[in-house]
């Protein structure tokens, strides 16, 4: 049985999602500027926005399987905004590193991006995410037609890169990154048929 949700409820829900995504970010930067984020506010903002981006990315990947499985088609109307919040958090994560960690030392920034594999991987994910964010504009989406879906399938790769980035960035504690790997694998598991289709297509040539 498909669940229908009124236009009004969707608006309220959207407002709620905006609040849930924006409030922690505002609270975070308020604490960071007023020096209330513990010993090292720089590390705190970098970690919070990084893990926030990854969580939002995984939530965005959960939407279509949920919508299909439980016939909750209204959920699809939230996917773009959650994806865009994942991008927003990712942008903050990257800017935190540039502004507050290396403190505008552009040479050091570039060196770090190329010399530290985990940063290279994270930056690649972010660059791909920019392409998805830009093409989320409805006009562009219409213009791109079928190629839009092809481009946005890169979300799977982006999420994988983000999980690898997290795994590589920790010094010794790998249980949390492994949990993220498991969540990623589960999300890909929901797309088994689609992924197998790609594989068959690739090898039947």
């Amino acid at each position: 049985m498909a669940i229908t949700v009124s236009q009004k409820s969707i608006l309220y829900l959207k407002a709620l999602v905006h609040l849930a995504a924006l409030y922690p970010l505002l609270d975070l930067y308020y604490g960071a500027v007023t020096d209330q984020l513990g010993g090292d506010p720089v590390e705190a903002v970098i970690h919070f926005t990084g893990i926030g981006a990854l969580n939002l990315l995984l939530i965005s990947l959960l939407i279509s399987p949920l919508a299909k499985r439980f016939k909750l088609s209204f959920l699809m109307r939230f996917r773009r905004m959650i994806g865009l919040y994942a991008f927003t958090y990712g942008l903050c994560h990257m800017l935190n590193f540039l502004f507050f960690e290396v403190q505008f030392d552009v040479r050091l920034f570039i060196e770090e991006v190329f010399e530290r594999p985990y940063i290279t991987v994270g930056m690649s994910a972010f660059l791909l995410l920019i392409a998805l964010a830009v093409t989320s504009i409805t006009k562009l989406r219409r213009k791109m037609k079928g190629r839009w879906q092809t481009l946005h399938n890169f979300t799977y790769l982006i999420a994988l890169l983000a999980v690898i980035h997290f795994y590589w960035s920790v010094k010794s504690e790998i249980i949390e990154p492994l949990i993220y790997f498991a969540m990623y694998a589960a999300l890909m598991g929901f797309r088994y048929k689609k992924l197998r289709g790609w594989k068959d297509k690739l090898f039947s040539r």
Binding site: A20, A21, P24, D27, L28, Y30, G31, L37, G38, A44, H47, F48, I51, G52, N55, L56, Y89
Partner: peptide
């Protein structure tokens, strides 16, 4: 602390 939210 601010980090005690759904995103963490």
């Amino acid at each position: 602390p601010a980090s005690a939210g759904i995103l963490d």
